[in-house]
Each structure stands twice: as C-alpha cells, then as structure tokens.
Design a protein around this nucleic acid. Structure first.
Lengths: 143, 143
DNA sequence: ACACAACCTGAAGTTACTATAGAGTCAAGA
DNA sequence: TCTTGACTCTATAGTAACTTCAGGTTGTGT
C-alpha cells in the first residue's frame, strides 16, 4: 500500500509517517518506479505499535528503546518492564505536579469572586506576591 | 541592578530574562554607558509576576493577556477571572487525561510480571494489539 | 597590566510534529 | 491524446519556551 492508505488505517497523517521514517522509528520502505513509498503489513504493525506508544505519551526516545529491545527476541523482557515502570512513574509524577498546581490556582481564584477594579483584584495581587516556587526538575516529556 | 542580580533574585537564568524581553513580556530596561541592562524594582516585580504565572504552567500568551489586563487599572477584573478559569479548566482536563493514561499503562504493565523471552512479553503484545485511541484535541500548552 | 567574571548579540538546538512551496506521478474522463 | 485532479515527492520553516553556543566587549580585583 502507499503512504496515504497506511496513514489512514493507522490514524495519522502522511507527514507523520514520513517524519517517523526520518527519525528512524519506521524502516525505509520500498519504492515504486515512480518513487512512491510502498508499505507491507510489517510496516503497518510497526506504525501501530508506535502510535500506541504515542497515545500513551511515550517519547520517541522511549519508543526507540522499546523497539530496539523488541527486535532482539533472544533477550528477556526485563528491560522492557523497566522502561515501562519508568514511564508510569513519569505520568504519576506529572499528575502530582498538576494536582498541586490546581490547588494553588483554586486558592488564588478564590481571592477574587466579584467583578471589581483591577487594582483590587485578589488574583493579580496573589500572582505578584507569591513566592516563586522552584519548578521540580523534569525528566520527562510530559508537559 | 544588572541582569545577573535580577535573574538571581527572581530564580531564573539571565538567558530567560533576555528571552522574556525579546518576547515582549518584560519591558526593555535602561542601559549603562557600557551597554549593560539596568533594572529597577518595577522590572523585578514584573519578572516575579511572570515567573509565578509560569510556575502555574501558564503559557506566554496567557501571561501576555494577563499583563495587558493588569496594565489597564480602569477596567474591571472580570476578564482576568476568565483567563484564570480557563487555565484551571486546562489543568483539570490534563489531569483527567493523565489519569486515564496511567490506568491504561497499569493494565498493560500487569500483562508481564516476570522476566521472560521477549516473544512472550505481554506488554509488547499489548502495545501491538491496542486499538490506537484518537488523542483528544488539546487547547492547552500542558503536555 | 592582566586575568577573569559578567555581560553583549545572534544563531542554532530541543520535541514531535504541522504547514508550506514547488514539482513529479498516475488514473480516469472528454 | 490531453487534461484534470488526487496523490505523492523533497526540502524548508514554523510551533513553545526556553537552553546552549560562538565570538566578542566591559568591568573588577590584584
């Protein structure tokens, strides 16, 4: 199949497919005499794998690692579990962070319940007065 | 004060300060005869405001809006509340998303509790088999 | 006088794409 | 046969919020 069909069944755009190829996540497919890419089922399976990883918010680096491990059937899957556990930890950490932010935002929001002059707006006063919190160091791509 | 001191008290790097200036978040300060930036307390207050907004994960666009509203003391603060409410909604939505992801990740993780051959690894099988979920459209900068 | 820290500008790198420009390929209809 | 239109190709730039780097200037302490 050609790139448009592949992208279609894999629920992504043709640009994304070409991008994955350039990134080395997807192997280079064959070409027609007219230079169009031709994909087989193995490409589709790999692309599905990648898209599922992305749906789980894994970074390209993580996916790269996972694909590398998966391509060595002789090895055990302990390393795979490790990648997974780390990713879960990232997600959990981000949820914690965001919950904390939400708490702060709600507190600030309660400083101003009514429409009043800007000078008196409790939110602005709060934003000006807050002690800048050091952002926790991030080892994740999750924003 | 010079840029290094400003950055220091505001808990950020000098590069970040210069970047905020280029982005129009921080007004251009005066210069010494030797072309060094010189800041006053008003710059520090503004920078603190910005850093607090960033600590709350607001985008530069949101901060820009907020600063614009704050600079018009005649106006009411209803618009400010609106920006805030929307941002809180973004944070809540992202928490929901991540919680859902965590759920899926945990389920997958349970597919493989032991060290075994890669071919049998339940995680990889799960990743290959999952039905790619359409990613919800994002109207936020939160990753 | 000289080292060294702090400052300056401008450009490129980061992530995972998306968008655009300009050109080539191919199947079907007139 | 010609043409239209859908699809494809490559290469380049843009996105967000910075960080890093290269190469040069200014100020300070001894």
């Amino acid at each position: 199949m050609k790139i448009g069909e592949l992208a279609n069944v894999a629920q992504c755009t043709v640009e994304t497919v070409r991008y994955y190829e350039k990134e080395g996540l997807l192997p280079e497919p064959g070409r027609t005499p007219g230079n169009f890419r031709v994909y087989g089922p193995e490409h589709l399976e790999r692309l599905r794998f990648i898209r599922n990883c992305r749906a789980l918010d894994m970074s390209h680096e993580e996916i790269h690692t996972l694909l590398g491990l998966a391509d060595q059937p002789a090895d055990g899957c302990g390393a795979i579990n490790a990648v997974f556990d780390q990713h879960i930890a990232h997600v959990e950490a981000r949820i914690q962070e965001l919950s904390h932010l939400k708490q702060q935002l709600s507190t600030l929001r309660q400083q101003c319940q009514t429409e009043q002059a800007v000078d008196a707006c409790g939110i602005l006063q709060g934003l000006a007065a807050m002690e800048t919190e050091a952002k926790p160091e991030r080892h994740t791509n999750l924003g």
